[in-house]
């Protein structure tokens, strides 16, 4: 028989053990609630980020938005005052010719246009040292959902070139470029770009853009690119009095500047 003191001690130990177990349970539950809260908060943050990302990417490019007007102003500042003829930007007397083979739907070409090419235009082309010729090579468009649009979109830019406005059209296309995996190139988008190009006679452009000569020129550009061994865009050919250099990938400004220095007289 346990003594009264022992019984008291046992009861006390049992009570303390129960209290401790209860406290542990409560603590565990509280920690799980906090963990669930943190998971919910993290999920909310990720959901918001995904919504922002998906929202900005899935929307088709709009040529009538306020942002598009700002883009147009940026392009005008970049190209304003630089001579243009056909698909060539820059002085016809420039010693160095940089030929870009591009696809208007290609995001890497966009990176080139908004990055090193913009610097080349601001510095070398504006100074009359270099002229840039735009030619066509199907890459992103041919690997996307509307390969048939390639000739149409490239010819639309060339049609603007018949009025000395090809580069305005090309730059606007790259700035407002949509997701390469969507079919955003349609008459509405192409027309919208044309309407953003200052000084472009819309009726004439609309007529010219379906010209078979321009479609043939696009095909001819592709044959030239393949003959040079180019298979990706942007691919660049730099020619000058001291020879030629090819840059078949996206480089930085120094990459192109080095090639220009190597070929200029």
């Amino acid at each position: 028989m346990a003594s009264r003191t022992q019984q008291k001690a046992q009861a006390r130990a049992q009570r303390v053990a129960e209290e401790r177990a209860q406290a542990q349970r409560a603590r565990r539950q509280s920690r799980l609630r906090i963990l669930a809260g943190v998971v919910a908060l993290a999920a909310t943050v990720v959901a918001v980020a995904v919504a922002i990302s998906a929202g900005s990417a899935s929307s088709a490019p709009k040529t009538t938005s306020v942002a598009a007007k700002h883009v147009s102003a940026t392009v005008n500042r970049l190209l304003g005052g630089i001579p243009e003829s056909g698909n060539t930007l820059g002085s016809p007397h420039a010693k160095v010719t940089l030929t870009e083979f591009g696809d208007l739907k290609c995001p890497i070409c966009r990176a080139f246009a908004l990055g090193p090419e913009a610097t080349l235009i601001s510095k070398d082309v504006r100074a009359g040292k270099v002229k840039i010729v735009y030619r066509s090579l199907c890459t992103a468009t041919c690997g996307g959902p509307q390969p048939g649009a390639f000739s149409t979109q490239q010819a639309a830019a060339m049609a603007a070139g018949l009025q000395g406005r090809a580069w305005y059209y090309i730059e606007l296309f790259y700035h407002l470029q949509g997701d390469e995996n969507t079919s955003y190139v349609n008459p509405g988008f192409l027309d919208g770009l044309a309407r953003l190009v200052g000084g472009l006679h819309y009726g004439k452009w609309l007529h010219d853009r379906s010209s078979p000569q321009l479609a043939a020129a696009v095909s001819s550009d592709q044959r030239s690119a393949h003959a040079l061994g180019f298979s990706g865009t942007p691919s660049v050919l730099v020619q000058g009095p001291r020879g030629a250099r090819t840059i078949p990938y996206l480089g930085n400004y120094q990459t192109y500047e080095s090639a220009i220095k190597a070929v200029e007289g």
């Binding site: 900005s56 995001p107 990176a111 990055g115 090193p116 997701d179 990938y249 480089g251 930085n252 400004y253």
Partner: peptide, 23 residues
């Protein structure tokens, strides 16, 4: 504005210059 070192051709550039590369 340089191209990243990548063993898979232009895959890294394609991802880096895609519209998903910005938030």
């Amino acid at each position: 504005g340089v191209h990243p070192a990548c063993t898979a051709g232009q895959s890294c550039i394609k991802v880096q210059t895609s519209q998903w590369s910005r938030l």
